[in-house]
Write a protein that binds this DNA or RNA. Structure first.
Length: 296
DNA sequence: CGCCAGGTTAGAG
DNA sequence: CTCTAACATGGC
C-alpha cells in the first residue's frame, strides 16, 4: 500500500463532508470508518480501491489499497477526489458575503469548510435524482441500495464488499418489472431505464453536455423523459459544479428556508426566487448550507 | 388514517 | 400559459 497527499484549500473541512457521506447506513458506493472513507473507482478499466483521511495540515491523505501506485494512477485519483469534494471552487467570495447574510451567517460559521460532495458519474447522478423524486430520503437510499446491490458490479477486498454504480449499458437492457420488484414505481422504473438507454445509445453523455453552456445543458437534460427542472439543476450542481445551479422545487430546501425564517408555511416558489436573488452566482452553495441546516 | 417526502408528466381549462 | 390528478410507498 502506498499513500500520497492532495493539497486542499484552507476553506475545506473533510470532517463536514464526512457528515454528508455518513448520511445513510444504506449507502453502498462508499464506506466510512471513523474519520476515513473508502471507495472504488475505475481507472483504465481497472478497479481501484482507495481510502481518504486528513492529516494535521488539513490535507487529504489518499492510500491506494489494492494496487501499486503509479504517477498516472495518482493523477487519476487526484482528479477524481478534487472533483468529488469540489476542491477547485474558491469559497472565499461566498463566505465573504454569506457572513453578512442573516440566514447564511450562522450556517457558514457552523459548517465552515463544508463543500458540495459531487457525483462525477452523470448516469449515477441522474438515476439517483430520479430515484429520490417525491419520496423521503431514507426510502430513496433503500431503493438505491437495492438497485446497486442487484445490478452494480461487486468488488471484494479483505472481507469487505464494495460496489460500482450499475452500468448504463446493463440498466438499458432491463425490464421495468425487474425494477418494480425493487419497489420502484412504474414511473421511476421507466425513467431510469430510459435514461440508461440515452447513455447507452450515445444520445447523451457527460462529455457532450460539458461542452454546452449552463442553460443549454439544462435544456438538453430536461428533454429526457423523467428529468424536470429539479433533477436537471440537481445534476448541474452535483456533477457539473455550476455554482448557480440549484433545485428550486426541492422540498428539503423549502423546509430549510421555512425553519430559518420561522415561516408558518412553506415558502412559495416566488418567495424563494426572490430570496435567492441575493445569492446570485452562489445558489448551489447557499442551497448546500441550507440543506445542511436540516440535520440539526 | 392523513400528510408529506430531495418531482414529473400528461391532460384539461 | 397555469392548474391538477396520478403516480406508489415509506416515515412519522
Amino acid at each position: 500500500m502506498s499513500s500520497f497527499i492532495i493539497e486542499t484549500p484552507k476553506e475545506f473541512s473533510f470532517h463536514q463532508c464526512l457528515h454528508f457521506l455518513n448520511r445513510s447506513p444504506n449507502e453502498l458506493l462508499h464506506l466510512t470508518q471513523g474519520e476515513q472513507v473508502q471507495k472504488i473507482i475505475r481507472v483504465h478499466d481497472k478497479t481501484i480501491l482507495f481510502s481518504i483521511e486528513t492529516d494535521l495540515q488539513n490535507q487529504l491523505v489518499v492510500s491506494v489499497l489494492n494496487q501499486r501506485t503509479t504517477a498516472t494512477l495518482q493523477q487519476a485519483i487526484c482528479s477524481y477526489v478534487t472533483d468529488w469534494f469540489d476542491l477547485k471552487t474558491d469559497l472565499k467570495p461566498f463566505y465573504a458575503f454569506a457572513s453578512n447574510d442573516p440566514i447564511l451567517k450562522s450556517l457558514v460559521k457552523k459548517y465552515a469548510g463544508y463543500r458540495i460532495v459531487g457525483m462525477p458519474d452523470l448516469f449515477e447522478a441522474l438515476s439517483w435524482a430520479i430515484i429520490g423524486q417525491q419520496i423521503n430520503l431514507s426510502f430513496a437510499y433503500r431503493l438505491k441500495q437495492q438497485f446497486v446491490q442487484s445490478f452494480g458490479e461487486k468488488f471484494s477486498w479483505k472481507e469487505r464488499t464494495y460496489y460500482h454504480f450499475p452500468a448504463a449499458e446493463l440498466v438499458a437492457g432491463l425490464n421495468p418489472a425487474s425494477l418494480l420488484a425493487l419497489q420502484f414505481s412504474r414511473q421511476k422504473a421507466e425513467y431510469v431505464i430510459a435514461t440508461a438507454k440515452a447513455f447507452a445509445s450515445g444520445v447523451i453523455s457527460k462529455e457532450q453536455l460539458s461542452l454546452l453552456s449552463f442553460p443549454e445543458a439544462k435544456e438538453r437534460l430536461i428533454k429526457l423523459k423523467g428529468i424536470g427542472n429539479w433533477t436537471a439543476n440537481y445534476v448541474l450542481m452535483k456533477t457539473f459544479h455550476y455554482p448557480n445551479a440549484f433545485p428550486l422545487e426541492d422540498a428539503g430546501l423549502h423546509q430549510a428556508i421555512r425553519r430559518q425564517l420561522n415561516l408558518s408555511a412553506k415558502p412559495t416558489l416566488q418567495q424563494i426566487e426572490q430570496l435567492f436573488k441575493k445569492y446570485k452566482g452562489w445558489e448551489a452553495y447557499a442551497t448546500l448550507y441550507l440543506w445542511r441546516s436540516l440535520s440539526e
